[in-house]
Design a protein around this nucleic acid. Structure first.
Length: 481
RNA sequence: UCCUCAGUAGCUCAGUUGGUUAGAGCACCUGACUGUUAAUCAGGGGGUCGUAGGUUCAAAUCCUACCUGGGGAGCCA
């Protein structure tokens, strides 16, 4: 009788031995001698492999030859207590079927470790490594936990459009969406491209944010969130930026900026705790990988604490909350400022530079920091204006090593103030009529924020390049796979 | 986009002030070994030194441009 396939994760936890089982997966390593071979098999259900013991006497020599790193197998045999050290159970193979061989001369993955840069060039195969297996299992867990978190708190998952007709958000350069043939665009009498002839009858782009649409949902459903792809055509070449990334944007009616911060902090802690509770094997692996990697670095470039401790540390303490103005005072009185070490001098009104944020988070407070009440001139039009006439109710959450992980604000709900600000900033009012109408009819105080999903995964996995926490990174000059 | 560092075997890297036939570890192939743990041991094959020019008797090594990648900055999530 055909044995039903078990996941390796379940087999490894099983105490029920001396029974026939079937496992399917990919070979990580094979070792042994003329009498017996040991095959480490992995099926992605866990970072751990199951050891398949092959008594050479029972199998065709050519079959065993084809079992090389990367080959895919179905193994039927007896789950037994391991005779060797290093694992509690193993499969004594009775039957082995090879689905696909992997020519050892040309298969790019080896038993030994590869650099992340090399693996990025073979992103179609990197899932098969321990590191990327761990990263993408954790990425899944975080996505799942986000839906859990919101579902448990009366939030509705709102699907905002990927193709948008408004370019008012001002969140960055956009990718145009058009069905015009390049070079053959119809022209108006003035010689400009005539978008009324285009598929949507107007100029359209890929979304840079679902926030404005989410606000519309929140003014009826109370609490909504979006979780979808976001596109920015910025020529950003850093380990923290992607042209295509995923963003979570909750939007809550009747929330002020303090409720907004409470939610953001609670959610981040929930997600970190979820990873610790559900992904500990993968986290342990990533922690060790990091320790190994940092051995070759000088002392001062190594992390201050191991990954798991760093995650636990986030849970234990409240995030520091202070105003932009207070932060500027701290920076002005800081050692680096007095010694002229900052490349950019600190002055009230400037947008804080990376070096300033890093000082606050990594040197001064040594914990996550939430900054609020930024100068209105450096923030978006929709943020609620404070009574001082100078600042807005914005909040940024800064994480060590990541920088801004969340950016949010209380929204301006006053029609007159909002439309005045739109005019002031030269945003085409005719494109914003629908947004403004939510302030005309039954307006409510409301708030929201945007969480960069990859930045979250970056923090939780301890990886250092954002291109290694999304399966197929899209960056300037790179859309391979 | 700017600054900076790098590109040598399938992978990771060494290669001195320019000087014979460019090396190592791992991987791969062959062989040995009765239970291995990224197995071990012995042997073997494997290179247009990122690309294109230039300097020189002579270039992996020096110069210029370009390409690719890392790190930092800006833009931001």
């Amino acid at each position: 009788m055909e044995q039903r396939r078990s996941f390796i994760k379940d087999l490894l936890q099983s105490t029920e031995v001396d029974r026939e089982v079937n496992a399917k997966g990919w070979v990580r390593t094979k070792r042994g001698n003329k009498q017996v071979a040991f095959v480490a098999l992995n099926d992605g259900s866990t970072i751990n492999n199951i050891q398949v013991v092959v008594d050479m006497a029972n199998f065709d020599e050519n079959l065993i030859k084809d079992i090389t790193t990367g080959a895919s197998l179905s193994v039927t045999g007896t789950l037994v207590k391991s005779m060797g050290q290093g694992q509690s159970v193993e499969i004594q193979a009775k039957e082995i079927e090879i689905y696909g061989t992997a020519d050892s001369e040309t298969y790019p993955l080896q038993k030994k470790g590869h650099s992340l840069e090399f693996l990025r060039e073979i992103a179609h195969l990197r899932f098969r490594t321990n590191t990327f297996g761990a990263v993408f299992r954790i990425r899944h867990a975080m996505a799942f936990a986000i839906h859990n978190y919101f579902n448990d708190r009366n939030f509705y998952y709102l699907h905002t459009p990927i193709v948008t007709g408004s370019d008012a958000e001002g969140a960055g350069e956009m990718f145009r969406v058009s069905t015009f043939e390049p070079g053959k665009e119809p022209k108006t009498e003035e010689g400009k491209i005539d978008y009324t002839e285009d598929f949507f009858g107007k100029e359209t782009n890929l979304t840079v944010s679902g926030q404005l649409e989410a606000e519309l949902g929140a003014t009826a459903l109370s609490n909504v969130y979006t979780f979808g792809p976001t596109f920015r055509a910025e020529n950003s070449n850093t380990p923290r930026h992607l042209a295509e990334f995923w963003m979570i944007e909750p939007e809550m009616a009747f929330y002020d900026i303090h409720d907004d911060m409470d939610l953001a902090e609670d959610m981040l802690k929930y997600l970190v705790k979820y990873a610790l509770d559900n992904c500990i094997d993968d986290l342990k692996f990533l922690e060790n990988r990091l320790i190994e990697e940092e051995k070759s670095k000088p002392q001062n470039e190594r992390s201050e604490m191991p990954l798991i401790e760093k995650l636990q540390f986030i849970l234990n303490d409240d995030f520091v909350r202070l105003t932009y103005t207070e932060a500027v005072d701290i920076l002005k009185n800081s050692k680096p400022a007095k010694k002229g070490k900052f490349q950019f001098p600190v002055e009230w009104g400037i947008d804080l530079q990376s070096e300033h944020e890093r000082y606050l988070v990594e040197k001064h407070f040594k914990k996550p920091v939430i900054l609020i009440d930024y100068p209105r001139d450096i923030k978006a039009f929709y943020m609620k204006q404070n009574d001082d006439g100078k600042t807005v109710r914005a909040m940024d959450i800064l994480f060590p090593g990541i920088g801004e992980i969340i950016g949010g604000s209380q929204r301006e709900e006053n029609y007159d103030k909002l439309s005045a600000r739109i005019k002031e900033m030269g945003i085409p009012e005719k494109d914003m009529w629908w947004y403004l109408e939510t302030r005309k009819f039954g307006t409510v105080p409301h708030s929201g924020f945007g969480l960069g999903f990859e930045r979250l995964v970056l923090f939780v996995t301890g990886m250092s390049n954002i291109r290694d926490v999304i399966p197929f990174p899209r960056t300037p000059k790179n859309a391979e796979f």
